[in-house]
Design a protein around this nucleic acid. Structure first.
Length: 475
RNA sequence: GUCCCCUUCGUCUAGAGGCCUAGGACAUUACCCUUUCACGGUAGUAACACGGGUUCGAAUCCCGUAGGGGACGCCA
C-alpha cells in the first residue's frame, strides 16, 4: 500500500475512441474533487495505445468536455502536449515487460491467435472457464517456432489469492487459480492496456486510482504486475456504474450518452456536475452543492457501492435551479444560438439586450436553455406573429373590441411600464365589469401568439409601446 | 459457464444495533398564491428484495436464496 503521507495524485484516463461519456465525466469529476480536497494533483492521461480506434478528434472532444465542465488537470505541458499520451510511452512499457522476462516474472508465448481461439472454443464446449492454459509457461526458448513473433505473458502466481483493498468496495479477494497469464506485450511490441496502465500509474506516481467499477476484476491482474515489479500498489476506488433509466448500461439507446449532448440541449455545466456528484455520493441530505462546497466535503467514504440510474427529471430540476441563479446576460448569450436557429437569423445587439431584460420572467419557467429559447422566440418576430390555434380561437370579435379599447388607453400611458399597463387593464376590467383575464388573455394572444407566456404586462413593457401597439392592432 | 460486486419509496439517497411510527430531494396527487404557464408555499401517497439466524432489541451483524450489474480479447 502506498504511504499515507505522499501527496495525493489522481488521474483521469479516457481512451480517445469516441465522445466523452457522461459516466466518464462523473469519474473525472470525482478524480478532480478528490485531488482538490486533498490539495493534490489531478492528471490527464489519454489511453491511445489502440492505434486503430484512437482519433485526434476524439481527444479534442474529451478535452473540450472537461474544460466545459470546469475540470482542469495539472499536466498541461507534458512533452509539448496538454496531456500525457500513453502511446508515447510504448518503449518504456516494452522495457518493463522485457525486464520482467529477465527477472523470471514473465515469459514469451508463441501461441498464435488462431491457436488461442481454438483453445477457448474447446474450453467453452466443455463448460470450462475460458483462460490461457499456460502452454508456453515452462517451455524452453529453444522450442520457439520460426517465423512467429511472441507475446510476453505475465507468469502469474498459481496458488494463493490476490486481494484488492478498495476504498469503495472494501476488501475484495480472488483465488489466483481463477486468473491466467495475461499478455503484457503484444507480438507487435505494443503494450496491452493492463500493462500500460500499471506502468503509467507507477511512473506518474499516482496514489489514488479512481475509475469505474467495470475495472474492478481487472484490478487483481494489475496488482499482480505491481507485485511482480516490486512497486507500491496505489489505493483503488472503484465507482459504481451509472445505468440508464431502465437499469441497463447507459448508452446511445438512452438518448444522451455524451457530455456534448447535454451542452447541446441547454444544460449548464454546474448543474451537470452537481447532478453527477449526487450519483453514488452523498453528504447527508444536501442536494444543491456548490463547487466550493463539494471540494470541502468530497471524500471517498461518501461513495456508495450500488449502481445508480440516470434520471432526466431530476437533472432537469437541478438545471432549473442553476438557471434561476445564473446571470441574465450569460443566459441570454447561451440562449441566442437556439433562438437564432429558430428564427433563421442572429439577434441584434438591441435584441440581445431585450432578451437579457426578459430573462427575469423567463428563468423561473425553464429547465433548460432550450426551454428559455422556445419561450423567448416570440419577442423577436418583427413581421407577422405566428399564432397558435388556441390563441387564434381566443381572439373573438368581442376580444378584439377589448383590444382596440386597450390600444387607445395604452397609447395615452405616461410611462409604459409593466405596472402602468397592468393598472390600465385592471381599471378597464373594473369599468366594464369583466374579469382581468378577459383583458389579459386576448392581450397575451396578441402579443405572444399563444395562450401561454411570461407575465403579459411585463411582456408589453419589454416589447415597448410601439411594438406592443403594432401587435395589438394587427391581431 | 466461471469469478467478482451490488440490493432502503418510481428515481437519487440519509441511516455505523435502540434516536426509525425509516428522514430529505426529484417525480406524482391535492390545496393555496395567480392574468396564462411557471416559480413559491402547505399537505398527502410511496421503500428496508425474500428466508433463516445472532441479540433483550436488526434497515443496520452473519448465512442462504432470488434479482441486477460487471469481468473473463494480441479492446480500453
Amino acid at each position: 500500500m502506498s504511504s499515507a503521507s505522499k501527496p495525493v495524485v489522481t488521474r483521469f484516463a479516457p481512451s480517445p475512441t469516441g465522445f466523452l461519456h457522461i459516466g466518464s465525466a462523473r469519474t473525472a469529476l470525482f478524480c478532480w474533487l478528490f485531488a482538490k480536497h486533498h490539495g493534490g494533483k489531478n492528471l490527464l492521461r489519454i489511453e491511445d495505445t489502440d492505434r486503430a480506434r484512437s482519433t485526434p478528434e476524439s481527444i479534442d472532444t474529451i478535452l473540450d468536455g472537461l474544460t466545459w465542465l470546469g475540470l482542469d488537470w495539472d499536466n498541461k505541458d507534458y512533452n509539448g502536449r496538454s496531456y500525457y499520451s500513453q502511446y508515447e510511452q510504448r518503449d518504456r512499457h516494452a522495457d518493463v515487460a522485457r525486464q520482467m522476462v529477465a527477472n523470471g516474472k514473465a515469459y514469451y508465448c508463441y501461441a498464435t491467435p488462431e491457436e488461442l481461439d481454438a483453445m477457448r472454443a474447446e474450453q467453452k464446449e466443455k463448460g470450462l472457464p475460458q483462460r490461457y492454459d499456460g502452454r508456453w509457461r515452462a517451455r524452453p526458448a529453444s522450442d520457439a517456432p520460426a517465423g512467429i513473433k511472441p507475446v510476453i505473458r505475465l507468469k502469474a502466481p498459481q496458488d494463493g489469492e490476490t486481494t484488492v483493498h478498495d476504498a469503495v468496495m472494501g476488501r475484495v479477494t480472488v483465488q489466483n487459480s481463477q486468473l491466467d497469464d495475461m499478455i503484457l506485450l503484444r507480438s507487435d511490441g505494443t503494450p496491452t492496456y493492463m500493462h500500460a496502465v500499471v506502468v503509467d500509474d507507477h511512473d506518474m506516481e499516482v496514489t489514488h486510482v479512481i475509475r469505474g467499477d467495470d475495472h474492478l476484476t481487472n484490478t487483481f491482474r494489475q496488482v499482480q504486475i505491481y507485485k511482480a515489479m516490486g512497486w507500491d500498489v496505489p489505493t483503488f476506488a472503484h465507482l459504481p456504474m451509472i445505468l440508464g433509466p431502465d437499469g441497463a448500461k447507459l448508452s446511445k439507446r438512452h438518448g444522451a450518452p455524451a457530455v456534448g449532448d447535454y451542452r447541446d440541449r441547454g444544460y449548464l455545466p454546474e448543474a451537470i456536475c452537481n447532478y453527477l456528484l449526487r450519483l453514488c455520493w452523498s453528504h447527508g441530505d444536501d442536494e444543491i452543492i456548490s463547487r466550493e462546497q463539494a471540494v470541502e466535503w468530497f471524500d471517498l467514504d461518501g461513495i456508495g457501492k450500488s449502481p445508480a440510474r440516470f434520471d432526466f427529471a431530476k437533472l432537469g430540476s437541478v438545471n432549473a435551479h442553476y438557471i434561476k441563479q445564473a446571470d441574465d446576460a450569460r443566459l441570454a448569450k447561451l440562449a441566442e444560438p437556439f433562438i437564432a436557429r429558430a428564427l433563421g437569423r442572429p439577434l441584434t445587439m438591441a435584441q440581445m439586450d431585450l432578451l437579457a431584460r426578459a430573462m427575469t420572467d423567463l428563468k423561473p419557467r425553464a429547465q433548460t436553455i432550450a426551454d428559455i429559447a422556445d419561450m423567448a422566440v416570440f419577442y423577436f418576430h418583427d413581421g407577422a406573429l405566428p399564432m397558435d390555434d388556441k390563441a387564434q380561437k381566443l381572439l373573438t370579435p368581442d376580444a378584439k373590441a377589448i383590444l382596440a379599447d386597450m390600444a387607445a388607453r395604452m397609447e395615452k400611458l405616461d410611462d409604459f411600464t409593466a405596472h402602468a399597463v397592468e393598472e390600465a387593464c385592471r381599471a378597464y376590467a373594473e369599468e366594464k365589469g369583466i374579469k382581468l383575464g378577459a383583458v389579459a388573455q386576448p392581450l397575451r394572444a396578441a402579443l405572444s401568439g399563444s395562450t401561454v407566456s411570461p407575465p403579459i404586462f411585463g411582456v408589453a413593457a419589454i416589447l415597448g409601446r410601439d411594438e406592443t401597439l403594432r401587435r395589438v392592432k394587427s391581431a
